[in-house]
């Protein structure tokens, strides 16, 4: 990750953003669990063009995940209860990371543990590996019994995990927050105070769906995490709340399907965005979104994306601008 030259030109806008010491060439990241280990999408996506790849959540030991059925489509979204199936941190370094090292893209390892100690061990192992540029702590998975959400739903627990992981790594530290709480800003403020460099939000909303013919839940796990466009307005509202509460960068996640959706988050104040479910639907979604953001910036004469970030107008007199290029 060399230093990025900040170019300001109307035809070649600068997209570079900084997330707590992590210099990204653009604000587009892939959301954990939706992009495999990068390799799965290489036929469709120029990985070098991404701001960052956030890999599937890693635990200390391999996890086999939940029994099937694990997914179900719901209106404008999908439920999943994969249960953090992953190869484990060591196998990831040995078998998956070498592929990603070939690319000039920031690799962010999403980590998960059942105990605080496990989070610490995973962070320690990954911090020692060449080619990992950041750590994202997952304290928000709704599909596992232990860990995950148990840490993400309480400010004290969230702060403890963050502080302990902070002690294990000098890498930029992101904390991924759950929307399944009464007040997400409490959690965001707690992890900020505990040393997080950024917060990413939202993870999935807990949901459920039933096959009425069989009178059975569609998922073997009964409940699952809802993602996709269905959750986008909620995600955007929470990003707005958190942006107004914390000083560290906020990374917006939740049902971003196209450039317009990504721009909503950036304008609202997200320093970067993560693309999740859209990758499943259109494998080249990230590239389309990136091109769309550039088109928008050119159309609006914006030379640097930092001018756009947090530029939301909320003054009461507004609303009658023509919305076109200035």
């Amino acid at each position: 990750m060399g230093a990025k030259i900040r170019q300001e030109s109307h035809n070649n806008p600068c997209l570079a953003v900084a997330i707590g010491g992590l210099e990204l060439k653009n604000p587009l990241m892939t959301a954990s669990g939706t992009f495999g280990y990068g390799e799965e999408y290489a036929p469709f996506v120029a990985l070098n063009r991404l701001g960052a790849v956030v890999v599937k959540g890693l635990s200390l030991e391999p996890r086999s995940g939940n029994p099937p059925p694990r997914i179900m489509e719901t209106p404008s979204g999908m439920l999943n209860a994969v249960g953090l199936q992953n190869v484990g941190a060591r196998a990831f370094i040995a078998e998956k990371l070498p592929f990603l090292r070939q690319y000039d893209v920031a690799v962010i390892a999403n980590i998960f543990g059942e105990t605080v100690e496990e989070y610490q061990r995973v962070a320690e192992i990954l911090s020692g590996a060449k080619g990992i540029h950041g750590i994202e702590i997952n304290i928000s998975c709704p599909n596992v019994n232990k860990g995950g959400l148990a840490f993400g739903a309480h400010p004290d627990a969230a702060a403890e995990v963050t502080e302990k992981v902070r002690g294990e790594t000098d890498l930029p530290l992101l904390v991924k927050l759950t929307p399944n709480v009464t007040d997400i800003t409490e959690i965001a403020l707690a992890v900020e105070a505990a040393g997080a460099d950024a917060v990413s939000l939202i993870n999935t909303l807990t949901g459920m769906s039933v096959d009425v013919e069989l009178r059975r839940p569609h998922l073997a796990n009964i409940t699952g995490g809802l993602s996709g466009p269905a959750i986008r307005p909620i995600a955007l509202r929470m990003v707005w709340q958190v942006v107004n509460a914390v000083k560290i960068p906020v990374i917006g996640i939740g049902g971003i399907m196209n450039a317009n959706d990504a721009l909503e988050f950036l304008i609202t104040g997200a320093r970067a965005v993560q693309i999740g479910t859209a990758n499943f639907i259109r494998p080249a979604a990230t590239m389309e979104i990136l091109d769309g953001i550039v088109d928008y910036m050119i159309r609006h004469g914006i030379g640097d994306i930092t001018e756009l970030i947090g530029s939301l107008k909320t003054d009461p007199s507004g609303g009658d601008e023509d919305g076109g290029a200035c």
């Binding site: 939940n66 059925p69 999943n80």
Partner: peptide, 17 residues
Amino acid sequence: EERMACGLGACLGCAVA
């Protein structure tokens, strides 16, 4: 046959034991 989201091996939705 199993329900799938991505078809590419990323979503891990189509698990079989």
